[in-house]
Design a protein around this nucleic acid. Structure first.
Lengths: 238, 238
DNA sequence: CGTACATCTGAGCACTGTTAAGATGTACGG
DNA sequence: CCGTACATCTTAACAGTGCTCAGATGTACG
C-alpha cells in the first residue's frame, strides 16, 4: 500500500496526513502544497483533483483536527474522577489546553480564521461537548439554570483564551503541572463565578439543551448567540 | 511630503502604514511586501533597507498595534464610571473585545505566533495594564491578596479568549450590545470566581506588583509564569 | 478486448520573498 | 562651489509558490 502510484488510492487522506505532518514540523505556513504532494509521491497538480485549492485542503484539515479534539474532550470529561465539584469541566479544560500545547502549530491551524465554514458540521464539536457538560451541571443542581444560557461561551472563551495565549507564546508556563493548575484554576473561577451570578434579568433566549444555539433557530427579538461549526448530535469520528 | 521620491523620508513608517492598511483590507495574509512597496511608491527591494524580511515588518507592525491597544485599555480603565464593583476591569475587557472586533484582521496579526520576541519591550502592554488594575483591586480590598498572584493570566485568558473566538468567527454575537454584555458577564464571573477562591495553598511566587512577572525575576523553585513582551513601566506611545 | 472514465502528469503562467550590484540623491568638509 | 562619502532607492535576477489546462496513464467494465 506504499510504493504503488496512487491512482485508486487514498490520495486525499494521504495529502491531509502529509499536510498535518508538515504543519507540525514547520509551522502553520512553513510548507507548500507542492511539498505535501512531493512527500506523498505525486505531482503538484494532483492535489487539485481532490481539493479546490490549498486553502480548501487546509480547511478540511482544520475540520478533521477539531473533530478529533472534540472526541478527546468528550472522553476526558467522561473519564473524569475525583471529588471536586467541577471535575468534569476541569478535565475538559485541562485536556483542551494540553492538546493545544502538545501540538501548537496544528492547534493554531485548527482555529485559524476562515476555516470556519458555518455550514460544515463538525462531528463532536468542542463547543457542543462543553454545552452538554453544562447541561449536566444544571441537571445535578450545581449550576443555576438561570445562569445556563450562554454559559458555554463564557467557559469556552476562558479555556480557549488560555490555550491561545500559550500556543502563541504570549504567556509561558514552566511544565505541564503548572499548565494543569492554571487551567484548573481558570475553570474553577469561571464556574463559581457563573454560579454566584447576580440574576439581573439577563435577556437571553430561553435555556436550551446543547447542540441548540445554531444559526437556524435564533430567538427573534433578543440578540442571539450562534456558533460556527455546529454538529450533528453524536457521531463517531473517522 | 507626498510626491517626492522618499529618500530622506519616513519610508519605514510609510511601509508600516501601508501594510496595516492592506491587512485591514485584505486580511492577515492577503497582501505582499511588493504590494505595500508599490502602494508607497517605491521599489520592492527598498523595504529591505528598513526591515530584515517581510516577517520582521510584520513583527514590528504587531508591536505597534499591541502598544496602541495597551494605551487604549489603560484609558478605558481610567475613564470607567458606574457603581459596579468591577467597573474598571469590565471597561478593560469590553474595550479589548471591541478593539478586536473593530479590526479583526489587524487584531489577529497582532497576536499571531512568532511576533513575540520576548526581548522587545512593548510600551503599555495589555498584560501590564491588566496587572496594574488587579493590584488596584487588591489595594481597595476587592480582591483577596491571596488570589492576586497569577490572577492576571486568568483574566487575560478569559478576555483574550472571547476576543479570539469572535475575530476568528467561531462565535458570533449580533450587535455591539450583545458583545458588551458578554464581555461584562465574562469579566464579572472570572473576578467573583477569583474572589471566592478556596485558598488551597496555591504555590505561587509571592505576590508582586505589576510589571513584575518577567523572564528575569523568576522564583527559583516553583513553576513560574512569564509573559512575553513585557514593558518599561510607563511611556507615551508614538 | 476495447472503450469510458477517474486519476494523475508536464509545462507554463503570474506572482512571491529575497539578494546582489549599481544608480541616485543628500550632506558636508575643503 | 566642488567632490567625496554615505544613506537610500532601483534594476535585474533567482528559486519557489498557487494554480490552470491539455494530455498521458492507469482502472473498471461492457
Amino acid at each position: 500500500m506504499s510504493k504503488e502510484r496512487y491512482h485508486h488510492g487514498e490520495l486525499r487522506a494521504a495529502l491531509l496526513d502529509a499536510a498535518e505532518a508538515l504543519v507540525r514540523e514547520r509551522g502553520v505556513d512553513g510548507w507548500s502544497l507542492r511539498e505535501a504532494s512531493a512527500r506523498v509521491g505525486v505531482s503538484p497538480s494532483a492535489a487539485y483533483h481532490h481539493f479546490d485549492s490549498r486553502d480548501a485542503l487546509v480547511r478540511t484539515l482544520s475540520e478533521r483536527v477539531i473533530a478529533r479534539l472534540g472526541e478527546r474532550l468528550r472522553r476526558a470529561a467522561h473519564r473524569a474522577s475525583g471529588d471536586h465539584r467541577h471535575r468534569r469541566l476541569i478535565a475538559y479544560g485541562r485536556s483542551y489546553v494540553r492538546w493545544a500545547l502538545e501540538d501548537p502549530a496544528v492547534a493554531r491551524l485548527a482555529f485559524a480564521a476562515g476555516h470556519t465554514d458555518l455550514r460544515t458540521p463538525i462531528s463532536p464539536h468542542p463547543h457542543d461537548v462543553l454545552a452538554a457538560e453544562l447541561d449536566r451541571l444544571v441537571d445535578t443542581g450545581e449550576l443555576p439554570s438561570a445562569a445556563r444560557p450562554g454559559a458555554e461561551f463564557v467557559v469556552w472563551a476562558a479555556v480557549h483564551g488560555l490555550a491561545t495565549l500559550l500556543t502563541d507564546g504570549l504567556v509561558h508556563l514552566d511544565g505541564l503541572r503548572a499548565v494543569d493548575r492554571e487551567a484548573e484554576r481558570l475553570i474553577d473561577a469561571v464556574l463559581t463565578g457563573l454560579t454566584r451570578e447576580q440574576p439581573p434579568a439577563r435577556p437571553w433566549p430561553t435555556p436550551r439543551s446543547a447542540h441548540s444555539q445554531r444559526l437556524a433557530d435564533r430567538a427573534p427579538d433578543t440578540p442571539t448567540t450562534t456558533t460556527a461549526l455546529a454538529s450533528k448530535p453524536t457521531e463517531a469520528p473517522s
